[in-house]
């Protein structure tokens, strides 16, 4: 491990914004290497380290994948579920963090419904914070795993045209991906109804399309976002059937993208809303399963990177 260099000088992983190109590059390469090793990637890097998974929102894949990653690095891991903790009794985030901090964890993996929660916490604890999704802000490990999957397909990120389609307004996945992909030299297009496109997003270096067909044109990758149920009942969009007929990706409108274009989805999917069921299951086009698989490898790489930073910076 000592000959690895991530060019990263922070003990927290809060977001992709501001992350250097060579840092991203090293995480992706390391994740690809680990992914190829599959079961043989177990190590003892985090032996005697305590990792706490603190999730204020429901999660299957992210939580499980962090847990598997930490365990394969021989860490002790503790999962705290919000429904059965003191948070339900009205404890503030800071108090919960202080309590956990007193147990001397080395890593705290946080998912929280409010943007900025991870950054706030990082100022009040001694352990490393990994942002596993904060509100509508960032979900850095998701963007990293998405990029690693694309690279694993033998596709170069530089010059690639990627369309991110759906609820951009409320999506942390979209924001982290935009930061990462534009840093790596990809061309990013966002597609969605005007009610789901946040103000001035063009300033983040992307092109905006309200028309699916023109947005898809000559895309190499289509990244489909999940549309939450409560946004499809006449609030931000009128209905599921209208959303599907204007923004649902199926094998037909996919033809407008480049030949051999691939489809990604961070999950969980709404079949028949943002993605046609048949397309979701077509493993020649859909990278959904590969995304989940890569999730573990990327998280091992991230824990490794932070462990190195801790060794270096906290001496």
């Amino acid at each position: 491990m000592d000959n690895l260099n991530y060019y990263f000088d922070n003990i927290h992983l809060l977001g992709i914004q501001g992350m250097k190109k060579n840092t991203i590059q090293s995480i992706l390469e390391r994740a690809q290497y680990l992914n190829q090793k599959k079961k043989n990637r177990k190590n003892k890097i985090l032996k005697d380290n305590l990792v706490i998974n603190l999730f204020f929102e429901n999660s299957t894949r992210t939580k499980a994948s962090f847990e598997i990653a930490a365990k394969s690095m021989s860490a002790d891991i503790l999962n705290i579920s919000v429904s059965s903790s003191s948070i339900k009794k009205g404890e503030t985030l800071i108090d919960t963090a202080a309590t956990l901090n007193a147990m001397h964890p080395d890593f705290l993996i946080l998912r929280h419904p409010n943007s900025g929660a991870a950054e706030m916490l990082s100022k009040h604890v001694e352990c490393s914070i990994i942002n596993a999704g904060d509100g509508r802000h960032e979900h850095p490990t998701q963007a990293l795993l998405d990029a690693a999957v694309i690279k694993e397909e033998g596709i170069n990120l530089e010059g690639l045209k990627i369309a991110i389609c759906g609820d951009i307004l409320n999506s942390r996945v979209a924001r982290s991906n935009i930061y990462l992909l534009t840093t790596m030299g990809a061309q990013v297009v966002v597609i969605g109804p005007p009610t789901l496109i946040p103000k001035d997003i063009e300033r983040m270096g992307v092109k905006v399309f309200n028309d699916l067909n023109s947005g898809l044109e000559s895309s190499d990758i289509i990244m489909i976002l999940r549309l939450q149920n409560e946004r499809m009942d006449g609030s931000e969009t009128p209905s599921k059937r209208e959303y599907y007929s204007f923004f649902g990706i199926n094998e037909n409108n996919l033809k407008l993208a480049k030949k051999n274009a691939l489809v990604m989805h961070p999950g969980p999917m709404n079949r028949g809303v943002e993605i046609a069921s048949l397309l979701a299951d077509n493993n020649e086009i859909s990278l959904v399963k590969k995304q989940v698989e890569m999730g573990v490898s990327v998280r091992i790489a991230c824990l490794e990177m932070l462990k190195l930073s801790r060794n270096k910076l906290l001496k």
């Binding site: 009942d233 006449g234 609030s235 009128p238 209905s239 209208e242 007929s245 204007f246």
Partner: peptide, 18 residues
């Protein structure tokens, strides 16, 4: 513009246009 003209939820404006 709103379902039932109730000023609560947006109608299916796109499908109405179609």
């Amino acid at each position: 513009a709103s379902i039932g003209l109730n000023d609560e939820k947006m109608s299916e404006l796109g499908l109405l246009k179609q």
